[in-house]
Simulated scan of single mutants.
Amino acid sequence: MTPFRAKCSGALSHVGEVCAAADLRAVRTASRSARPAPLKILAIALSKLGNGWIYPLLAAAILAKWRLAGLRIIAPAAISAILLHFIYPYLKDWCGRRRPFQVAPELPSLLDTLDAHSFPSGHTMTMVGVLTPIAMLWPAATASAVAMTLGMAWSRVATAHHYPSDVLAGAALGFGVGYPTTEWIVHLFG
């Protein structure tokens, strides 16, 4: 290895360590925010809603507002979620990142995990992947979509299941699939 390459490798390694430490500090802060009983219940409830329970409720809200025309909103959201869940397990296994509560045992895990690894956040990925088409096709729902996404992201970090970088990557992946999927479907079907 050349001296320049060795310096670059060392610098990148140091940057990675600094980022990982900042990520873990953020988890500790979020975890402390969920210590009061009402916020602990909220963090657990939001995470459990992200296990899949929120999506039929969203579909029902869309159908209540738009009737059968709401299927034009639901379809790209569902297709986005399906596409994401084809990618997700392979990415999780490939990255193999340990969860914060496994790295720092003083952090309490507030609920059971659905899979072994931390990166990316599947809850945040799915939430953004579903809410992106909804916000694109029903702009009045954008503020609610942002609030739901932020709540889910907080809950995943507060329960010590994810790092902030996990939820950011999940959000980027969800948007990266949800946006073009919706654009493609709208282009094809109007």
Results as ranks from 00 to 15, higher is better:
P3S: 11
P3Y: 07
R5Y: 04
K7E: 14
S13M: 10
H14L: 15
G16P: 14
A20D: 10
A21D: 10
A22K: 03
A30H: 05
A34E: 06
R35F: 07
R35V: 15
A37K: 11
P38N: 13
P38F: 14
L39D: 06
K40P: 00
L42Q: 02
I44C: 05
S47G: 12
K48Y: 04
G52L: 08
Y55P: 02
P56Q: 07
L57K: 01
L63H: 01
R67L: 06
L68N: 06
A69S: 11
G70V: 02
P76A: 09
A78G: 15
L83A: 15
Y90S: 12
L91M: 14
L91R: 01
D93G: 13
R98K: 14
P105Q: 11
E106A: 15
S109R: 02
T113N: 13
L114I: 00
L114V: 01
D115P: 02
S118P: 01
F119Y: 14
G122W: 07
T126G: 08
V128M: 14
T132C: 15
T132K: 10
I134D: 04
A140C: 00
A140P: 00
A141Q: 05
A143E: 10
S144F: 12
M148H: 01
M148W: 11
W154Y: 03
S155M: 07
A160L: 03
A172R: 01
L173M: 15
G174T: 01
V177W: 07
V186D: 07
L188H: 05
